[in-house]
Simulated scan of single mutants.
Amino acid sequence: MSGGDQIRTTAEAHEEAALAQARPNARVVHADPDISSAEQKPLPEAIARKPVEEKSPAEWAYERLILYIQNFEEQLDGDHEIAMGFAGSDSGVMRIEGIGFFDPDIVTFYGSDETGAKTQLIQHVTQLNVMLRALPKQVDDEAPARIGFRLVADLEQEAPVEAETAHGER
């Protein structure tokens, strides 16, 4: 071995890999580009310390739910507190204002309910069921929000790179 070579333990290699990966793959697109969400924020050191592949799905989902709850609460005023509803109940309809994912198994929907209350649905991919429904826009004199166009535009920005990589072309 030359003087610059080092022998690393398996634990050191895992720690190095965890530190090199700033965060797992996550994406979100909102109708309002100024919205801040959990998918965009760096992972706290306490969560990033242990590599994702060493976590159980339950542990990893729990940690991401904490991030979502923290981010949601940061957007509340002093007159409101967080509550939770469960999918599959009679929780009503949500106006979709944002959609995101967090690998490996969570999809989240941002929006408001029929009364205008801010809502967010966080769902495991194995439980994913979506019904799309047209609702009257909230303010008659404003243009309707079109999240679908923003989602497609975001996908199109990445499509050429993915296509080139898939075919091995540059």
Rank of each mutant, 00 (worst) to 15 (best):
T9V: 01
T10S: 10
T10D: 00
A11S: 07
E12R: 06
A13T: 07
E15M: 11
E16K: 08
A18T: 07
L19E: 11
A20C: 01
A22P: 03
R23A: 14
P24H: 10
R27E: 11
V28F: 11
S37D: 12
A38P: 01
Q40N: 04
P44N: 02
E45T: 09
A46Q: 08
I47N: 02
A48I: 00
R49I: 06
P51H: 03
S56P: 01
L67K: 07
Y68H: 14
E74P: 00
L76E: 10
G78Q: 08
D79M: 10
E81S: 08
G88I: 06
S89P: 02
S91W: 15
G92M: 09
G92K: 05
M94G: 04
M94C: 07
R95F: 15
E97T: 12
I99T: 05
F102Y: 14
D103W: 12
V107C: 12
F109G: 02
K118I: 14
K118E: 13
K118A: 13
T119H: 13
Q120V: 07
I122V: 15
I122S: 00
Q123N: 08
T126I: 06
N129K: 13
M131D: 12
D140W: 04
A145D: 15
A145M: 14
G148V: 11
G148Q: 14
F149V: 14
F149Q: 12
V152T: 06
V152G: 02
A159V: 02
V161W: 01
E162L: 14
T165R: 11
G168L: 08
